[in-house]
Design a protein around this nucleic acid. Structure first.
Lengths: 155, 155
DNA sequence: CGACAATAGCTGTCACGACAGCAACAGTCG
DNA sequence: CGACTGTTGCTGTCGTGACAGCTATTGTCG
């Protein structure tokens, strides 16, 4: 690496990393989700829905706290919860102390699913990362986190 | 790397890489697209739309060839083209030799935009990859491609 | 030629994301 | 107490993605 701060994006650069929805980054992310969705199809759940169940079953929480965790906003949470509630896997209750808040409660039916959902993410992860060394996974994670900071930081 | 096939996904592993839409991978991809969308907002275009214009302006092509390039299917292409056609940036014509096919033609208005769109992806790329060495970018790309193969290959 | 499989696009449906605007409620402070 | 401000969740709108099913054509082959 040369002395000056290289700007890999500046010149004859892997634009494919960025171009439209075909971006390699997007591609991998999307196809990963599709694969997980496929593995969850038997349970009639999407990756989002399963992730929410796992998270909410572990600890009572609110849409507000779940949203960033699931990578969406409160609007998306509203609808996600709508769908899960319609399936009877989740219930919404008013928070007793702060009536603006909602308590997300996983029903018995929802809880029954949890033990089967958790391994799915493990298997998906295994498939995604097959053949990668732990070192590579660490590196990848670090790079992704740096890029995320880059995107969020500067205007 | 040890001798046995390590399965980094098998054990105490970065499930966050996979979990729901909050997956780090998805997160970076989505936020990247959001950033690009923001940079393209002055032109009233999304990342997809701009990417299509760039690609179609370079070479006459068909929805069928554009779809995988933009990371979607022909159904998505139909609607994407609908929107661009509505904005007058693109025109659809029947292919003279194969009447099943459509020729995507960028209008003069669309062509006028192209020179301003290209740099946007460069700048987005620069921002995403700020502080990463070329070596790291290469590595990242290689890892992403390996993961993509992993996802596509095995059932 | 006539049946048939394959291909290209289109349409309908469902689930996200991002964004903007809104209503209810909470906390603060004059 | 009463106005102000911030927070929380909901709704409406737009643009993707993924999938399934349909139609118009083509190309192939008996």
């Amino acid at each position: 690496m040369t002395n000056d701060r290289r700007m890999p994006g500046g010149d004859g650069v892997p634009i494919q990393l960025v171009l439209g929805g075909g971006s390699l980054l997007n591609q991998v992310g999307r196809e990963l989700r599709t694969v997980v969705d496929g593995m969850l199809a038997p349970y009639d759940l999407t990756a989002q829905q399963a992730a929410l169940l796992l998270s909410a079953a572990r600890q009572e929480t609110s849409p507000n706290r779940l949203a960033p965790e699931l990578g969406t906003d409160t609007a998306g949470m509203t609808r996600l919860l709508d769908r899960l509630e319609a399936k009877g896997l989740v219930r919404r209750r008013r928070h007793p102390d702060d009536r603006r808040s909602v308590v997300v409660e996983v029903t018995g039916q929802g809880r029954a699913l949890v033990p089967r959902l958790a391994p799915v993410f493990g298997r998906a992860s295994a498939r995604l990362l097959a053949g990668l060394s732990e070192e590579e996974v660490r590196l990848l994670t670090a790079l992704l986190e740096r890029m995320l900071r880059n995107l969020r930081q500067d205007a």
